[in-house]
Design a protein around this nucleic acid. Structure first.
Ligand SMILES: Nc1nc2c(ncn2[C@H]2C[C@H](O)[C@@H](COP(=O)(O)OP(=O)(O)OP(=O)(O)O)O2)c(=O)[nH]1
Ligand SMILES: [Mg+2]
Ligand SMILES: [Mg+2]
Ligand SMILES: [Zn+2]
Length: 584
DNA sequence: GCCGTTTTCGGCCCGACTGTTTTCAGTCG
């Protein structure tokens, strides 16, 4: 998200919070600003682009009056509407609405009855019992609020998809072992495959009589630290080590489809779907699809049934972000997304020749045993990456020879010799043309100058005939390092023109390109490569979440180079060399 | 405040759980 978009989304969110706080006649105005805030936060372009194109009102949820807000924001950096609201609401309290247990009504009561203006004052009043004595409050409410405050810091930092999958899969597997559990599955952002995850959402189907048993299993697992809520259909716990929430929904088998649809989300997708259903005379909830007229339940056993009843195709969970998939489904034009089983090889990994922990032999035998791949590319670091023990030209020449020997022992050309060559400060490459031209597969990556605008460096790398792919193109590390500034439009043009692929790096904290940029690459007709950048054997499994990123970008197998045979990849390479007028 | 192959006005997704509310508001998914 760009800085301006971040700022504007935050202001809109605060406007929404202010309207909620003020309460009064129309709660929908707050909802509208909240929706617009989320809409702006997920915009593919900087807000300035919409302003100069005069397309701000095309942003979903933005109308005439918000377009004016945005104009003012562009001119002055502030929104007058919010400046005016600041005199009516205690702005320091608005951010507290993100904390579990702190709703607009609670904060308003605390503010009007006790005249508290800051978080610290509220904390003191929670501790000394002042708030507990307020009308409508009590010991339990204060306890929830205190817990919310304590957990808020960890909750703000979302989990990585991979970490969350490991925890979630364990919980699901444990459920599947229980004889009375008919079905169990991950739901929420975990099933949609977002790169970061807020909580673990799990759905189970049991017979009505087994509800309590399954709820008890959930709250008594050894990973459960405490129970947050517990009812017949819904249980939430706090997980021990992670200090995060896990939500369980319990339904009967005939409700499975509608419940999974609901619990998978996203929230925006659900609201859009339910609104459309209503227009068609149906009501959709987690319990099924109902005819509004008769109240009759017409389906909900499977997700497919839910969507089909509304005249839509079933779509993959990864697409359900309300980014146009509902329209596509209604037109029966949902693409066939790339799958893990389409992947024919892995094109970035490191061995003991640089900073990997396994030898060439160990890697080859591990991959051959565990993956149905036709090829892998060994892409050790080049010398500029000193911390990663990068090799010089001579090292690569020796490795080429070692790989040739190993392949002949394997009886097939399984390992391709390659490099993850550093792009130097001036955009030149860290290895000589003589060596680069002997490598089967070259990925060029930036590992230095991570704050500067790197557009020109990357474009220059694309223009080298020996570079086949740009590695982790934005350099971001989730939660640790922002992407370096890149004019992505220009990079896409260069990649397209030169026939260079862009990587979707599947390391859990990279996921680089991310879903949105991968989508832009696909739309621009730029080829993508999904690779694990493995440094150890377990890393090869990251391919799954790399594919998830591509699916969230609505990619088909055609968009991903390493769904193709090596012969076809060689065609891709020759094609680039033809374009760049090099004759091998 | 936004929005429309039914609408330019009148709706806005739909439901579960908790607490002190004595009949349901507030908060959350
Ligand atoms: N219809 C409807 N469904 C909702 C609403 N809020 C949440 N859901 C559904 C869709 C969500 O994906 C699912 C799980 O809720 P979460 O709060 O855990 O959100 P989600 O997992 O999407 O994101 P997260 O990573 O947890 O922040 O419940 C809502 O207001 N209306
Ligand atoms: Mg969730
Ligand atoms: Mg949840
Ligand atoms: Zn490395």
């Amino acid at each position: 998200m760009t800085e301006s978009n971040k700022k504007l989304a935050a202001i809109f969110k605060n406007i929404a919070a202010s309207y909620r706080f003020l309460g009064g006649e129309n709660p929908f105005r707050a909802i509208a600003y909240d929706k617009a805030s989320r809409s702006i936060a997920s915009l593919p372009e900087d807000i300035s682009v919409y302003i100069s194109n005069g397309t701000t009102e095309d942003i979903p949820g933005v109308g005439e009056s918000m377009a004016e807000d945005i104009q003012e924001f562009a001119a002055k950096g502030t929104v007058p509407r919010f400046e005016r609201l600041k005199s009516k609401v205690p702005i320091d309290l608005l951010e507290l609405m993100d904390i579990s247990g702190f709703g607009p009504q609670s904060l308003k009561t605390i503010y009007t009855k006790l005249h508290l203006q800051t978080k610290d004052e509220i904390v003191d009043a929670l501790k000394d019992g002042t708030i507990a004595r307020l009308y409508g409050f009590g010991a339990k409410k204060v306890e929830t609020m205190m817990r919310g405050l304590k957990l808020h810091k960890t909750i703000e930092n979302r989990m990585l998809l991979w970490e969350a999958l490991e925890v979630g899969n364990k919980i699901v597997t444990a459920f599947e072992k229980l004889p009375f559990v008919q079905k169990a599955a991950l739901a929420g952002s975990l099933r949609r495959g977002r790169e970061t995850i807020g909580d673990i959402d799990v759905l189970v189907a049991v017979l009505d009589k087994d509800r309590k048993k399954v709820a008890d299993h959930f709250t008594k697992q050894d990973v459960a630290a405490r129970i947050l809520v517990k009812g017949d259909t819904k249980v939430s716990i706090l997980l021990k080590d992670l200090k995060r929430q896990a939500d369980l929904r319990i339904v009967t088998p005939d409700e499975w489809g509608s419940a999974l649809q609901y619990f998978t989300g996203s929230k925006e997708h659900n609201i859009h779907l339910r609104t459309k259903a209503r227009d068609m005379g149906f009501k959709v909830s987690e319990y099924g699809v109902f005819e509004i007229q008769s109240g009759r339940r017409v389906g909900g056993a499977t997700e497919k049934e839910v969507y089909n009843l509304l005249g839509m195709q079933l779509m993959p969970a990864e697409m359900r972000e309300d980014k146009g998939e509902i329209g596509l489904a209604a037109m029966h034009r949902i693409p066939k997304l790339v799958e893990l089983s389409d992947i024919k090889g892995d094109l970035q990994m490191h061995s003991t020749w640089s900073d990997g922990i396994k030898t060439l032999e160990e890697i080859a035998s591990y991959v051959i045993q565990n993956f149905p791949y036709d090829y892998i590319a060994m892409t050790d670091h080049s010398k500029a990456s000193r911390i990663a023990k990068g090799m010089d030209e001579e090292g690569f020449l020796r490795q080429i020879k070692a790989i040739r020997e190993l392949n002949s022992k394997l009886g097939k050309n399984f390992i391709k010799s390659g490099a993850e060559v550093d792009v130097l400060a001036d955009g030149s490459l860290d290895l000589s043309e003589e060596v680069l031209s002997q490598l089967d597969w070259v990925t060029a990556s930036i590992h230095s100058g991570l704050r500067s605008n790197n557009t020109d460096r990357l474009i220059k790398a694309c223009e080298s005939p020996w570079v086949h792919c740009i590695g982790h193109p934005t350099g971001r590390l989730i939660g640790r390092r922002e992407p370096y500034p890149v004019d992505f439009k220009r990079l896409l043009e260069a990649a397209k023109e030169t026939g260079t692929a862009l990587e979707v790096n599947a390391q859990p904290n990279r996921m680089d390109l991310n879903d949105e940029l991968a989508r832009q690459a696909r739309e621009a007709g730029v080829m993508l490569v999904i690779s694990t950048d493995s440094h150890s054997p377990e890393n090869f499994s990251y391919m799954k979440i790399g594919v998830t990123v591509a699916r969230r970008a609505w990619c088909t197998a055609d968009n991903i180079l390493n769904t193709r045979s090596w012969n076809e990849i060689e065609k891709f390479i020759r094609n680039k060399q033809k374009t760049m007028k090099v004759h091998a």
